[in-house]
Amino acid sequence: MIELLVVAVGGGVGAAARFMVDGEIRARHSGGFPWGTFVVNVVGSFLIGVFSTLFFTLTHYGVAAEDARMLRFALTTGLCGGFTTFSTATVESIRLAQSGRMRLALANALGTLGLTVAAAGLGIAVGGVFG
């Protein structure tokens, strides 16, 4: 039951942060490429990698397993899950393709995929240093 509250609060904070960060980036880059969502997704994927290792780090330093598991859940499924978005990234790639900018569409779709997976791997490696 507490999981439901935790994921809702984390997801709400994450989504609001995405809205603000995306808006600020958008205001500075009015060109064709959707940098806002792109940056949010890569940063969020790095963070989820770091947070995914948190359980081992926290229990290593004596935090109870139950608390460590809940904090990891709040930050990964909640915060990072709400912060990053797949649907908007998909819509933005399709819009680029529909406006004839096929190369930018592919760069957005494949670039987001490649960089988010790489960022998550980097996050896991960075988080592992503390564990």
């Binding site: 995405r18 978005t85 908007t88 998550a120």
Partner: peptide, 23 residues
């Protein structure tokens, strides 16, 4: 658009979990 699109649907889907699960 902002409440349902950016909020509900944006928060519903996730890219970070996709990246983490791939790793």
């Amino acid at each position: 658009r902002i409440g349902i699109g950016t909020g509900v649907i944006g928060g519903f889907t996730t890219y970070s979990t996709l990246a983490l699960e791939t790793q």
